[in-house]
Design a binder for these strands. Structure first.
Length: 262
DNA sequence: TCCTATGTTGTCAT
DNA sequence: AATGACAACATAGG
């Protein structure tokens, strides 16, 4: 699930449950999910508390009342669950923090593509990863600059976290559907105005999805998400939605609605 | 058995 | 140094 709006939900959930409580235990069932030695997580986090959080794209940062900042990435199948009793530990909660009040925060990750890391500075971490500003805050100028010299299809570039951090596969499809542009349009062939329409669609999709708390059923009727499947039909034209692959990722298109620019 | 899945990262070639 | 194409990563479920 987790693209920008879903991770925004996780942030709200985290802020509502897990801030300002002393951490008394750290458990990890599979060290492959940790980008640092397990002891480092235990030693640096136990006894501290989470003080504030920040989301940049799909990356989730948690500052503590000390040096370490925890970095989480949810991968394809991650989410957070706050629960009390050990018996309620979700099956795929491979990483668990226990708080002084007896509650637990579980980092669920069925497919184990998610991970945790430690850093001391969000800014330097962002620079190191060359992560762009969060797509929600990103300026048109920064977006345009990151895009304009690229020489491939528009969709894979939208998925590049250096361009607009937070955009994932369903959002890229939705943005291009809203902008009426085919995912295999070549950037070099596109006019600035067309790139601006993609930027505007990106902002619209982000704000809509956050407002609806990423509950797809609540999205406006003309959103692709309602028909983003192989037997779906375009809301506007009624034509079949086509499933294909672009940049190695499953891609849904309304060919009569989305213009290919090349 | 084979294929797919909402993501990133490493490798290799250009 | 950058960029692009693509495989690899790990796992469940249809």
């Amino acid at each position: 699930m987790p693209e920008l709006p879903e991770v925004e939900n996780f942030k709200k959930y985290f802020d509502g449950t897990s801030l300002n409580q002393k951490i008394v235990a750290f458990d990890c069932a599979d060290d492959r999910l940790l980008k640092q030695a397990r002891d480092l997580f235990s030693n640096q986090l136990i006894g501290k508390h989470f003080e504030s959080s920040k989301r940049i794209g799909k990356y989730f940062f948690v500052e503590t009342n000390g040096d370490p900042t925890l970095v989480m990435h949810f991968g394809m199948t991650g989410r957070l669950t706050y629960y009390k009793d050990q018996e309620d530990r979700p099956k795929f909660a491979h990483i668990v923090f226990e708080f002084e009040n007896g509650f637990h925060l579980g980092f669920e990750n069925k497919r184990k593509f998610g991970w945790m890391d430690l850093t001391t500075s969000i800014d330097s971490y962002q620079k190191e990863k060359k992560l762009s500003d969060d797509a929600r805050d990103l300026s048109w100028k920064a977006f345009y600059n990151a895009l304009k010299n690229r020489k491939t299809f528009i969709k894979p570039v939208l998925l590049d976290q250096k361009v607009a951090a937070g955009i994932g596969n369903w959002m890229a499809d939705e943005i291009l559907y809203q902008a009426k542009i085919h995912p295999e349009s070549k950037i070099e062939a596109m006019k600035e105005k067309q790139l601006k329409s993609i930027f505007d669609a990106m902002k619209k999709v982000i704000e809509t999805a956050i407002e609806k708390e990423a509950v797809y059923a609540d999205f406006p009727q003309d959103f692709l998400m309602h028909n983003r499947r192989e037997d779906g039909n375009c809301y506007h034209t009624g034509d079949d939605i086509i499933k294909t692959k672009v940049g190695g990722r499953a891609t849904y298109i309304s060919p009569s609605w989305q213009k290919k620019i090349d």
